[in-house]
Amino acid sequence: MENNNVAKSSRITLTSKEKSELIIEGFITIIILLLLNIAIASVSKLLIDDSLTIQNLIFGIKEVLVKTFFSNSFYSLKKFVFFIMLVIDVLIVYWRLIRRYRQMQLRHIITELHFIADGNYNHRIPFELSGDLGKVIDSVNGLVDSTVEAIEEERRIEKSKDELITNISHDIRTPLTSVIGFLGLIEQNKFSSEEELFRYSHTAYTKAQQMKVLVDDLFEYTKVRQSSAPVSLSIFDLNQLLNQLTADFEIEATNHGYSIAVDSKEKSIIIEADPEKLVRLFNNLISNALKYGVGGSKIILESYTNEGNAIITVKNNGQPIPKEALAQLFERFYRVEESRSKATGGSGLGLAIAESIVLLHNGAIRASSNDEWTSFTITIPLKQSSGHV
């Protein structure tokens, strides 16, 4: 849903009915005040005529006020009292009209709220008022913005879930069809030799392994995507971990025509992190380099520290990644090549898992590629915050 903020008007425009209400309100108030003034004047005259003390007090106050603010022409008790009562009456009429006007403003705001509540989430209360009503309008508009954003986020999550299910179904269905097909041939004895039987069972086993890789990656992806995913922190030497990884991948790299090595600017890098998750992170990056770095011969793991962070770059000199693909690399199920070929096929979750692991460590990962190197650079704090465990 698109969020369109309506331009605010300077004030609320009253309807003809509301203007009439204000006029009637003022007229009634004036009549009531006139009657009240007459009553007060009558009662006051009786009290003053009967009390010399009250007369002296009133004349003393009047004399001070007249000498300070007025000319001698006002030196009349009746004129003085009339002036004071007139000021009070004007203030009361003004207060009553403003109070009713505020009530009308509130009524307009409530009408706008009902309109929004009926599902018109693109609408905003268009009035710009001062005081508490202005704060209420700003708060309501802000609340509607937050609600719309939450609805959009929920829709994005639902769409993301649907896409996840669609992609998983697509990736599982193909190998599952092969498994069922070859096992069906075996079940129906549709093989002519033991060699053919072995080929059928081996193909079914290979396809089942592909399904297991996908399920394992999916499980890992959903696990590390949770912001509350457990992180088992320990302190270790990052360079030792990288050296162990290169040793583990040495044979596989050689089979792919690659050499793999660690190039560190420092003898040791002591880091606080989850070693198991970092192993998964670098396994994914190295496996990707071997899978997609067509025509390359080197995989290098560079490491150094900078401003309290460990900087690790996994790079290969294979075929570069197109610029338009770099921004989408960390999206789940995204592959640079359009086909899901058997040679490079995988779950498509490797880099998405890698990014999630980095984020769990409060770090960042970025990709770059040119004719010389395709690089994945990871930045992870050497020490994790005490609240992130």
Score class of each variant (00 low, 15 high):
3 N>T: 10
3 N>V: 12
17 K>W: 10
18 E>M: 08
21 E>C: 06
26 G>N: 03
26 G>D: 01
28 I>W: 07
31 I>A: 10
33 L>M: 08
34 L>I: 06
37 N>P: 02
44 S>R: 01
48 I>Q: 04
50 D>S: 14
51 S>K: 04
56 N>R: 09
63 E>H: 02
74 F>T: 01
81 V>E: 06
82 F>G: 09
84 I>Q: 07
85 M>Y: 10
88 I>Q: 00
88 I>R: 01
93 V>Y: 10
97 L>N: 11
104 M>L: 15
111 T>D: 11
111 T>E: 13
119 G>M: 09
120 N>S: 12
121 Y>G: 04
123 H>N: 12
125 I>Q: 07
134 G>M: 09
149 E>A: 13
150 A>W: 07
157 I>Q: 09
160 S>C: 03
168 I>E: 11
176 L>Y: 09
182 F>T: 04
186 I>V: 15
188 Q>R: 08
188 Q>F: 08
204 A>R: 05
204 A>E: 05
212 K>H: 04
217 D>C: 10
223 K>S: 10
224 V>A: 07
226 Q>E: 15
226 Q>L: 15
227 S>C: 00
228 S>N: 14
231 V>A: 09
234 S>F: 02
235 I>Q: 08
235 I>P: 00
237 D>S: 06
241 L>S: 06
245 L>Q: 12
255 N>Q: 13
260 I>V: 13
262 V>N: 14
268 S>I: 03
270 I>D: 00
278 L>I: 03
284 N>H: 14
287 S>I: 01
291 K>L: 09
292 Y>K: 08
296 G>V: 04
297 S>Y: 03
299 I>L: 07
310 A>V: 06
312 I>N: 03
312 I>Q: 05
312 I>D: 03
327 A>T: 14
337 E>M: 07
338 E>S: 12
341 S>Y: 00
344 T>R: 12
345 G>P: 13
349 L>F: 08
353 I>W: 08
355 E>F: 06
361 H>I: 01
370 N>P: 02
382 L>E: 03
383 K>S: 03
386 S>F: 05
